[in-house]
Write a protein that binds this DNA or RNA. Structure first.
Lengths: 318, 318
DNA sequence: TAGTTAAATTGAAACGTTTCAATTAATTTC
DNA sequence: GAAATTAATTGAAACGTTTCAATTTAACTA
């Protein structure tokens, strides 16, 4: 491993000159800077991140902590964040589980975007103290260094439900995701708001956990019921898809027997038959916005945190 | 930000004692070690990764570099790698694009797993010189510090094709992915081997690029053809799905008009109708194996690089 | 040409750890 | 109770950079 010292030796100059040259400091004339850069690349020198980070007390790196790599919603979001970050000269790393904790507390990044249900508010607040800006995507949380950016679930679900009501549905059931999550609560409240406006009561409520298997369970439960709702509003697509599959397998026709809607607009939702009505978020754009906000925060500029709007996708399922 | 110095001051001992205590060095008696640890946690001290990495000349971190976050095959692989790495006390970071390059050359990790088509063999060889072990997943490449671990494409495709032949298919077409990639070449060669064994010639070849849109194009091309193959072996699922969708939309019945098979067994493949026959790899297990191998490499232990077997999933599409 | 100013270069400290080698304290041995 | 052994603690160097402040060199001025 060659170090800056080796470069200096070959170039016959001091370490500081090499450092300045490599960092394009204007005090080094172009001609020498070029010569030094050439030598550096010839002997295969790359600065050590560890040394630079230690001295500069920053890393030019942003951490994105996610729950796991499996979720269908993340991909575009990550690509969007990375796109913007790279454009602005930052390096992005993504991690899960225990790795996220390690990276956070040992300050391996200058800032972070977090959407990991496994990190408690508690420990997040604790970590954020030592850390620099953290944007949380999956919860409402306000504290030193913590900012939240969320999808406007309430509004989107409110609009979707209004559309459903305008189609004449009346016996409307609601399928919950994990009860006390931000997503579940805000989606449910949007749903309720639309119903209340029309003076309609929820026909029945079901409780899942955002996964397809939980949808399948609920589907089975529904089949036993003689008095079915005519419409099922689900807190996300995965549950809706599980329910739909179960109902269809047992001879129910969607949407004539029962309508259904989801939230997230995952890929699969436009592959099933009928296609699932849902709420889509342009996650790539959303990712870019998040990254831009974090960058401002890192530069200690003023930011205006805004919510991302969902786009209602009405398809064949109701 | 509190440093080790602060801990030492509060504890009324030297920096070295704190360091030894925090690292569970047996020369510090338990009683003082516990006291020091308690103080450290009270004042919210966490060691700086930068300083530790610099001094120790390693990071206990593994980098996984991927092409982008969108590919349907990666998730389980990443989760598998992370599972094993975490279990062994390593931190895992994943990155794409330019970020991967930065992290690699500045030695922000001790080792890496790479499956990023955008990093050229050339630059990989260059980077690996300064680096520690790199496992590449998406190509055959042997050089200092570079090891490759791959799916046994040839064998899997050979077996699948034999099964197809045993069902009496005869006019068999092959759909290529990106021409000179490892996956394409080895899958194709397995396909050919099975045909040759029976003395059968390929009926026709088509050229895609592993994406669904390219499958759709090929589907359109096929529709113009009066003399269709009776079976289409595709280099991956995404193309197969694109072709299938296009053919079905235009009234062709699968598998009676034409059979089709894929490779990878992505989620979608068991959602379409008929379900797509494909080759599945247990990516979670595969990820664990990869991580285990890399860990051995990091410890400079002997490793035996082996190929991962594919599992043939025969479903309704032929 | 000497004096002044500007340009280019450099020495050295600092960032926060780890760890070697040395010192000090405590315990054992005879 | 002195010598020897072991246990506990510590000072200081080193890891590879960046950057301040100072020095050296070059370029102008009058």
């Amino acid at each position: 491993m060659s170090t800056i010292k080796d470069v200096a030796k070959v170039a016959g100059c001091s370490i500081s000159t090499v450092s300045y040259a490599l960092n394009n400091d204007k005090r080094i004339p172009d001609i020498t800077a070029d010569r030094i850069k050439k030598i550096a690349s010839e002997i295969g020198y790359f600065p050590s991140a560890a040394a630079r980070n230690l001295k500069k007390r920053n890393t030019d790196t942003v951490l994105v902590a996610i729950s796991d790599f499996g979720g269908p919603v993340y991909h575009e979001l990550l690509d969007g964040i990375h796109f913007q970050l790279a454009k602005s000269g930052y390096t992005m790393i993504v991690s899960t589980g225990i790795s996220s904790n390690n990276l956070l507390k040992e300050r391996s990044a200058d800032g972070a975007v977090i959407t990991d249900i496994h990190i408690s508010d508690q420990s997040l607040i604790q970590l954020a103290k030592n850390f620099r800006p953290i944007i949380v995507l999956d919860r409402r949380l306000k504290d030193t260094n913590i900012y939240n950016m969320t999808i406007d679930n309430h509004k989107a679900m409110y609009c979707l439900t209004k559309d459903i009501l305008s189609k004449g549905y009346f016996k409307i059931g609601y399928v919950h995701g994990v009860k006390d999550t931000y997503d579940n609560q805000t989606r449910y409240s949007g749903f309720l708001a639309a119903l209340q406006e029309k003076g309609i009561k929820v026909f029945r409520e079901y409780y899942g956990n955002f996964t397809k298997p939980s949808g399948i369970m609920i589907g089975a439960e529904l089949l036993k019921d003689s008095n079915l709702p005519d419409m099922l509003v689900c807190a996300n697509d995965e549950m809706a898809l599980g329910i739909m599959e179960t109902l269809q397998k047992n001879g129910k026709i969607i949407p004539s027997d029962i309508g259904i809607s989801g939230f997230d607009d995952i890929d699969l939702s436009s592959y099933v038959n009928p296609q699932l009505s849902s709420i889509k978020v342009n996650h790539f754009e959303w990712g870019k916005t998040i990254a831009l906000t974090l960058i401002k925060l890192l530069k200690e500029e003023e930011v205006d945190i805004h919510k991302q709007e969902g786009i209602i996708m009405i398809r064949g399922s109701y």
